[in-house]
């Protein structure tokens, strides 16, 4: 509908403006072929071949042939339509695998081999394995550890059949750390770029700009999030859209981290690094980028005027690693090139 409107409007504009019709009429007819095409044609044609012999003509009966075949030939066109919704594993109509181009979730690629990925594979991964190596003599078995969840001790009759008590110190059952071997060297699993825009409470257009900025720097489609609760100090109201995130894995993740580490972070003035207390104690570290830092991403920088002034947002970058504690994750990130400062908290 919109395009149809556009066309009619532009048609009107061109008619009132220049005179393309007259110009068209004045133009000479041009050929773009460089040679005379008839010279390239082969003189021999199938018409000069002898016709099929008498017995071939006699025996040719396509109707009988198809009757004799008994089964239908597959159609020449690819006629399968993938179902729009996945209806479960028991439904007869199953979608094709994601590697199939007819699948709705098919993604072509990868189109490049990121430098960071190559560096990790060739250098960082063996080095991390060597750094974290602990030697166990042959025949060593780890001493058995006590139960992580404690039982309720006491005379109270209500302790009977009560769910087990949480670990000492916190209610959270931490992830276990296995000794690092060649199988579980920590690696990058994903990056989440999150940008909360406070001004979006007043004007949702600001969030659209933030969306475009995040999409531009991450090369991934963003998701919009609503405020879960009202916070008066921040001007949040429940149900209003306030933030955008982009989840990156694989090629996009490596490209984004490479850009951040090699281009953006070195250009931050007086940047000490990522705070040592960052992390969720299960191997995911977060650091923040201010609006000026986001503006120094090469994708934003080359096209800075595309974004309205003062609407480029800052963002939080969460790096997910396969490490199960912050110490290992920090070692991985510092070997990639993200410095840490302050007290290192595990």
């Amino acid at each position: 509908m919109a395009l149809r409107e556009l066309g009619s409007i532009f048609g009107l504009a061109s008619r009132s403006g220049t005179r393309p019709v007259v110009r068209c009429a004045n133009l000479p007819i041009r050929r773009y072929a460089s040679t005379d095409a008839t010279q390239d044609l082969e003189p021999a044609s199938s018409f000069s071949a002898p016709p099929p012999s008498e017995d071939i003509v006699k025996s040719y009966d396509p109707v009988a042939q198809s009757r004799r075949r008994g089964r239908r030939l597959p159609p020449s066109r690819y006629q399968f339509r993938p179902p729009k919704y996945y209806r479960g594993p028991l439904h007869p109509h199953q979608p094709p695998p994601p590697s199939d181009p007819s699948s709705r979730v098919f993604q072509p690629g990868p189109f490049s081999l990121p430098r960071l990925e190559q560096t990790y594979q060739s250098t960082i991964q063996p080095d991390l394995m060597t750094l974290a190596y602990t030697h166990f003599p042959p025949g060593y078995t780890a001493p058995p550890k006590g139960a992580r969840l404690r039982s309720w001790e006491g005379a109270s009759p209500y302790f009977k059949n009560r769910p087990l008590r949480g670990p000492r110190g916190s209610d959270v059952l931490r992830l276990l750390r296995q000794p690092t071997t060649f199988r579980n060297v920590p690696k990058l699993t994903g990056v989440t770029v999150h940008s909360m825009v406070k001004e979006a409470n007043e004007d949702p257009a600001v969030l659209d700009v933030a969306k475009m900025v995040v999409q531009a720097i991450t090369n991934a489609r963003t998701k919009v999030h609503k405020a879960r609760m009202s916070v008066i100090q921040w001007g949040h109201r429940e149900g209003r859209v306030v933030s955008v995130t982009a989840d990156l894995t694989g090629e996009d993740m490596y490209h984004f981290l490479g850009k951040t580490i090699d281009v953006v972070l070195p250009r931050i003035k007086d940047w000490k690094g990522v705070k040592g207390s960052s992390g969720d104690s299960s191997g995911n570290l977060t650091f923040g980028l201010s609006a000026e830092n986001v503006a120094s991403f090469p994708e934003i920088e080359v096209n800075y005027d595309m974004y309205p002034p003062k609407m480029i947002p800052g963002c939080h970058v969460t790096v997910h690693t396969s490490a199960t504690n912050d110490r290992d994750a920090r070692l991985l990130l510092s070997s990639i090139g993200i410095p840490f400062y302050g007290k290192l908290v595990d």
Binding site: T119, D262, R327, S334, G337, P339
Partner: peptide, 21 residues
Amino acid sequence: VAMEKKGVWAGVPIEYARMQV
């Protein structure tokens, strides 16, 4: 001496992370 882990978890020097080009 080989089993010492002193200073290992403090991180690697920043020069280590030079991009391989």
